[in-house]
Design a protein around this nucleic acid. Structure first.
Lengths: 215, 215, 215, 215
DNA sequence: AATGAATGAGTTTTCATTCAT
DNA sequence: TATGAATGAAAACTCATTCAT
């Protein structure tokens, strides 16, 4: 059912980095599927195909592993965002690229949506106060702010858009679809997980945001 | 700390309706704060100030109680929506009223956001297949569809807006804010739970949706 | 090997007082035989012939049970001491009665010696700060102080004996024998647990203390 | 907090004797602070600043290390006692020197008290049957017996004192104070670990024993 | 001789649920 | 209808010990 760790590289029988990476990946899946409280340490270890106690050896306890997973998840998406080199594109293209990336990243990494929301359940207790995280997002805000400024100057975007407000709206439109995909499918009797529905939604989000940007 | 049940009506020692209502309310809070797996049957009973066994007596088990809570939650919001009498308003006003209602309802009933998302964690297992629920939302779709049709006819809305797509977008903009309010506050170093931030967000959502409707 | 709980009284199938008492007694033995860290919650429950989880139901956790055991143990010995009615005896007789009681109580309740010493291992963390305990021992000090005063006045005891100092010495002579009975037996190759050795020791302690009192 | 091993001599990368000594010292502290069952192999290794596996390499297992610690502890105190050269002193002086030594040794080596008592917890399982240990204590008994004989002959001591009985009493008065110092402090609300209390106690013990010797 | 990784058995604790009254 | 006592399965976590290098 759940995806399993690849076989341990046979030439290295003891490979702490590999072990830790396996655990992190398995934990990421478990936590995103079941949340912090629903996740089972046993299952994480099994999924990672490592001895359960190594989890404690390397991460201390379940909660610390959870924190490590969260941190890694944020780092990954923000790193991927920075690779987009949005500053090199014209503002409208940059913005669309950002929207598309956000939507597509979640399509490919649905675990991330669940992870963030579960962390919210805990009132952000595990990420609150992380200097790293705040710095990461200060850069994000500046990046979006830069695109908006260029767009305004060029006359392609409306004036006075708050970058954080905009970011939250873009994120809303992308994340909510996945965070509620099953309940929405159920109540509207529609298979929102299907490829066609997803690409339809993707286009809608792009249109939706653009309507605002250019209003 | 957590809100407690009011004193049991003193003249009735045995009051099944009161007891069930207490349990439902306590469960709603517990489940929304901790999710299905994180919620504790003990805590629900304590919160409801009734004996734990009564929970089993009236609802069978934890999961059935969860289903009852979910169903009640959906019923409440949809009932409130129907009370808005949107069909009696001009389309633009009707739509704004709907947006405002959606946002404000979540502001006042944050538990609902958490509840839906937790249910999504379980792949909507508990609501999937409920005929009642689907009927309820068919009415919702028709209601929104009617407003859109009127607006298009009057020339105040753009043409060809899919009512479900639009509903999901409005919901996205409202729900996501609350479903991620703590994590967003943490990463952006901003107190999004403050009254001023909330009303600022409310206005942004209204503007955002209107830009699309009128584009 | 270990002594077992008597059968649960057949006419009462659910008897919380009985259950708690069983647990306390079983715990007293386990803790005195193995110390706090060496004791096994499983073994305590088995000894008490009750479900292991009742231990948590009634006492919260292992450590709280330990505290309850300690408190009860102190209460018991001090209560027994008060029953001696030392104030009604002439000072020399009172003192001898006290010495004999102390020695005999430990002979019959060896667990108590082990318990105190184990608690000392934990730097008295579990009893420190207990108002009850201090009050209990204030009474003890006054009682001994009273006997000493009477004895001094009557000229049968030397003057200026500090009651706490004396108490500690009496306790030393009684407790140490039992707290080290096995090691002493081993190094001196003598069976100090035998009845004859014990009564020989008892007399020695009486003589030893009296020599000081009358010096 | 806990005292740490001194830096490993830099010129020797591999130094079995040093390593073993470090382990023994660390183990002595750990065992005396926590007992056999409470001690953690991990902590011992950390304290000794050596790899945990070396503990197994040199001592086999936790329990064997415990035995080694016990043996060394007994050897040390008995060796120090023999260095007192009690036979060269007049009997009263010799006895006082012995009492003082016993008390002072424990003041400086409190771990020893805990060690013996913990071993008693285990019914002296680890020292029972050791020929070395018995020989060691046969010499001790003879030494005390010699002093007593000389004292009796000189008329400074009472007659018919059993050397083992006396030894146990002296030990009682010295050991008990330390084995119960925290609990006694707690119940009597007195800081018995303070220097002033200790020297007061020391004098009391001397007086107490002398009263008996000369009775 | 020395090291860090890995393991399995065991230990405390949690928790939904049922029993007996 | 209501209650507190009792239960068993499972969960997180600990710990001495061994493996591989």
């Amino acid at each position: 059912m759940a995806q399993r760790a690849k076989n341990r590289p046979s030439d290295v029988q003891r490979n702490p980095e590999w072990t830790k990476a396996q655990l992190l990946e398995a934990a990421r899946l478990e936590f995103s599927e079941n949340g912090l409280s629903g996740a089972r340490v046993n299952d994480i270890a099994e999924r990672a195909r490592v001895n359960k106690q190594l989890l404690y050896y390397y991460f201390g306890d379940k909660e610390s592993l959870y924190v490590a997973v969260l941190k890694q998840a944020y780092e990954e998406i923000r790193a991927r965002e920075e690779e987009l080199n949005l500053t090199e594109l014209p503002p409208a293209a940059a913005m669309n690229r950002f929207i598309e990336f956000t939507f597509d990243y979640l399509t490919d990494n649905r675990y991330f949506v669940a992870l963030l929301i579960d962390e919210n359940f805990h009132k952000a207790r595990h990420v609150r106060g992380s200097r790293d995280l705040q710095d990461m997002h200060t850069r994000l805000r500046k990046s979006i702010g830069g695109i908006l400024a260029r767009g305004e100057r060029d006359g392609v975007f409306r004036a006075d858009i708050d970058p954080i407000e905009l970011y939250i709206s873009i994120a809303s439109l992308c994340y909510f679809y996945y965070s509620n995909i099953h309940t929405l499918s159920a109540i509207f009797g529609r298979g929102l997980s299907e490829r066609s529905e997803i690409s339809r939604r993707r286009q809608h989000v792009i249109d939706f945001v653009n309507a605002y940007l250019k209003a």
